[in-house]
């Protein structure tokens, strides 16, 4: 069964200057439980694709079905609830909120869902311990190393036990050792929680350790023949 089914997606950014068409007529499908890697040159719209799949951005045309739900048919409020319950995001620059501690950052998805503060903090603390950051919960985001920051970002993405994890170059800003550690953690948690995971990466070694590899270009996105399809 498909966890992600995107059909004929088009996206054009209209800001200052001429409109920029990122992609047009793009289709993409990932089965449930798959750890998929997306590779491709910069500027082809990998991050935009993840934003569309997670419902934080909307396509100009096309349809996105995630975990059986049509994102375009939802109201903004329903889409927000869907993201909170079903989708976790990890960004390249971790995007931890600097005014808050690691534990508070991880507790945010729970607090947005209306979980009482104490309960949210207890869950966040347990999750931080699970990813090897017990005792670091009271530290501000700036007091953590790059690898630790990204681990906290992963914990935040998994706080609500989502069925879909979307990671946008989660290791792109880390040294080789830290990158390996973070990717191992993503793989481990993917297996442990039975999620569907889509990782955008420029690292072929890490991509090779995924279940499936997709290559994205100006022409679209295609499964690579280099990796067998599982799941």
């Amino acid at each position: 069964m498909s966890a992600i089914k995107a059909e004929n997606l088009s996206k054009t950014y209209t800001g200052e200057g001429a409109p920029v068409t990122v992609f047009s007529g793009l289709s993409f499908e990932v089965r449930e439980g798959t750890l998929a890697a997306v590779m491709g040159p910069s500027g082809v719209g990998k991050s935009t694709l993840l934003h569309l799949l997670g419902g934080i951005d909307r396509p100009d045309a096309g349809r996105v079905e995630v975990l059986g739900s049509d994102l375009e048919a939802m109201t903004p409020r329903d889409r927000a609830r869907f993201r909170n319950e079903k989708v976790g995001f990890v960004f390249q620059f971790h995007h931890l909120l600097p005014e808050f501690t690691a534990e508070e950052n991880v507790a945010f998805p729970h607090r947005i869902a209306g979980v009482p503060e104490r309960e949210a903090r207890r869950k966040a603390s347990a999750l931080l311990a699970r990813i090897g950051l017990a005792g670091r919960g009271d530290h501000g985001a700036r007091a953590l190393s790059g690898g630790e920051q990204q681990r906290v970002a992963i914990a935040r993405a998994l706080a609500r036990d989502p069925k879909l994890l979307l990671a946008d170059e989660p290791t792109g800003n880390l040294d080789a050792a830290a990158a390996r550690g973070v990717f191992d953690l993503i793989r481990e948690l993917h297996r442990e929680r039975g999620m569907t995971t889509v990782v955008v990466t420029h690292n072929p070694d890490l991509a090779a350790r995924c279940d499936r590899l997709f290559v994205m270009s100006r022409e679209g996105i295609l499964p690579s023949s280099g990796l067998p399809e599982r799941g």
Binding site: G54, I56, P76, R77, A80, R81, F82, R83, N84, E85, F89, F91, H95, L97, F108, P109, I112, A113, R156, R160
Partner: peptide, 16 residues
């Protein structure tokens, strides 16, 4: 602005 984007990714609604 970035925080707003991150809160949205975590499921915060526009009203929130």
């Amino acid at each position: 602005k970035r925080d707003l984007g991150v809160f949205t990714s975590m499921g915060a609604s526009p009203g929130s």
